[in-house]
């Protein structure tokens, strides 16, 4: 059984604001029957941009219903610009947290709100206009990109928990992986490299680059790498697992490990293997 908070239980068993707002001037619809959950959010916005009323209709599990109910409580009375700032984390937090497999319920709430506001303003939500990557759940590349950036996601599982994308047949996993890589690649380029690093800073940056950029790729092929020492600009590493017995390990070391460390730490680095 899921470990739902009392607040989730309360909003599920006693949902607030179920139904359709009369004279609504903003409607947001997300999800579908085949996806297993769906939300229709209706709002009425006053002349001075205040959300006067909000109601929901939701098909879905307890956390989907609770997230929708929470959302309506959160936005009622809010200025439109303030409401637009509500994130899925805010919804989850309002409920005292959600199981990680259920984060997508809070994302559905956020998306419903975003679409209702866009509908009121006569706009279209940009993310829905992308190319569909996950056919099972109809999730676009732009939605995945956004989740990777805003929620700082790094793995397929996290994407599945947030967006459901990739949670069906699994055929799109390579495409999702590519998006994560592309977006994260861009993000890592933004790591601020101190102009003059102390030895301590340099070692820390080497360590974190190994952890984040290099190890996961090697571990995918059942290999691994361990940092042994840093002397000046020489980085001594030990290859482990299948890397240790791989005929191409020297190529990996120079073309991948050294190149990445030079890119993200400093151009002067030389990587050497310790057996």
């Amino acid at each position: 059984m899921w470990d739902y908070t009392e607040k989730v239980r309360d909003h599920f068993l006693n949902p607030r604001n179920v139904g359709v707002v009369e004279n609504a001037n903003g409607v947001g619809e997300v999800g579908s029957l085949s996806c297993g959950d769906a939300l229709k959010l209706t709002i009425r916005v006053s002349d001075n941009d205040i959300i006067e009323d909000a109601k929901f209709q939701t098909f879905g599990c307890a956390s989907a219903i609770a997230s929708s109910s929470a959302l309506t409580e959160m936005v009622k009375g809010l200025d439109l610009n303030e409401a637009a700032k509500i994130t899925n984390d805010d919804i989850a937090e309002f409920l005292g947290g959600l199981p990680k497999e259920k984060i997508h319920c809070s994302v559905m709430g956020r998306d419903g709100l975003e679409r209702a506001i866009a509908d009121f303003r006569g706009e279209v939500v940009k993310e829905t206009q992308g190319n569909v990557v996950c056919e099972c759940f109809g999730v676009t590349d732009l939605e995945i990109e956004r989740a990777v950036k805003e929620d700082n996601l790094t793995t397929i599982d996290e994407i599945i928990h947030h967006l459901k994308a990739g949670g069906g047949c699994g055929k799109c996993h390579d495409d999702i992986e590519a998006i994560i890589h592309r977006v994260r690649g861009e993000a890592t380029m933004e790591i601020i490299k101190p102009v003059r690093m102390s030895n301590m800073q340099k070692i820390k940056l080497i360590e974190s680059t190994l952890e984040r950029e290099i190890k996961p790729a090697l571990q995918k092929d059942r290999g691994d790498i361990e940092l042994v020492d840093v002397v000046g600009n020489k980085v001594y590493v030990r290859l482990q697992g299948s890397c240790a017995t791989c005929s191409k390990s020297q190529i990996t070391l120079k073309n991948h490990v050294e190149a990445k460390l030079r890119e993200l730490v400093t151009q002067e680095l030389i990587v050497e293997e310790v057996k």
Binding site: F12, L13, L33, G36, D37, G60, C61, A62, A64
Partner: peptide
């Protein structure tokens, strides 16, 4: 037009234990 986990959890409020072929559970 309804979802299984919600049905199960509402039944659980009455002490009824069943299971569902739905995804969410």
């Amino acid at each position: 037009y309804v979802e299984g986990e919600s049905i199960l959890l509402m039944m659980n409020e009455f002490g009824i234990c069943a299971s569902s072929g739905s995804a969410c559970t």
